[in-house]
Write a protein that binds this DNA or RNA. Structure first.
Lengths: 161, 161
DNA sequence: GCTAATCATCAGCGGTACTGATGATCACTA
DNA sequence: TAGTGATCATCAGTACCGCTGATGATTAGC
């Protein structure tokens, strides 16, 4: 039987199951599409976070990415070995490291972002345009606590008045 | 600043980031709500899968749950130690194990399912009823390859005519 | 100056996926 | 019926990640 992987109706409708397997499917696509860029999605996450706004410390970087502070050490080790970021002691507080994107880092960030965009597109292909945007909106509410956006609006941060 | 955890606009809108953090939020709720039942969500998954339809082997069980075959060994070890399932060599093919829910297993399955339902409800609380059902439908399409259900319909399995 | 707090880093643990063994059993076939 | 190759559960080993709790360096507050 080909349907050896059918979880069955009770398990297959659990949110945890659905979220996990959606994530696995997306990860697979990311591996495929991002292989030529030489960075993983995880590493792209670091680059994106750095481009958004330079963190005050590695620990803040870890919090913003949602990884453990000790994992950030290894993550930056790899990115520094690839010459995509630089670590430099903060002159104002020499306990901290300033982490910066290099020029190469910005180039790779662009390429990797495009690759990730393609992976997301392939992932969402079956949903149609408004299915995809509804999913993004719903996940944004769940993961970031965003209020249901009334309309496209670029200038907003998480804040409840 | 309290917003030490804000990923920033570029990272915070990536699907991978959103899926991962939605999953983490749900996992946290599951731990909280399921603690009194004595089983984890992962273990509930096994129980649900067994209740849906008894697998022909541990390997098929692993495939249906989406875990590694070698992880299923340990998972069943734990559940067997809790007397929720029984492993017994298949009389027809003695390489295989028949895995069955015990009476206790069914009881705990019911309790744990209720607890997980509550966790899901808490998780989805911000979305409203139709937000929640839209999310389920969209994730079902992504994770299971389901076609967009025209209307609520209990009797269907994965199959493309 | 002393003490407590904070930072990056490291070592160690637990859980999970994955690979590749092992021994038992089965299916096929010559 | 004996031999061969496949399949099953299990185990050992590796890798990655999150978490805890150290360490040494540095800073801040007193």
């Amino acid at each position: 039987m080909a349907d050896d992987r059918d979880p069955g109706p009770a398990l297959g409708r659990r949110l945890g199951y659905l979220l996990k397997h959606a994530m696995l499917a997306l990860e697979e696509l990311h591996e495929e599409y991002m292989a030529p860029t030489g960075v993983t999605v995880r590493e792209l996450g670091v680059l994106l976070m750095l481009a958004d706004r330079e963190p005050e410390s590695q620990q803040q970087a870890a919090r913003r990415l949602g990884v453990d502070r000790t994992s950030m050490v290894g993550l930056l080790d790899v990115l520094e070995a690839k010459s995509l970021v630089v670590r430099r002691p903060d002159s104002a507080d020499r306990r901290r490291n300033v982490v910066e994107l290099t020029a190469t880092g910005r180039t790779v960030l662009d390429q990797a972002t495009r690759a990730s965009d393609e992976a997301e597109q392939a992932f969402l292909a079956g949903l149609g345009d408004d299915g995809a945007s509804r999913l993004r909106a719903l996940l944004g509410q769940l993961a970031l606590g965003e209020s249901p956006e009334p309309r496209e609006d670029a200038s907003r941060r998480r804040s409840e008045p």
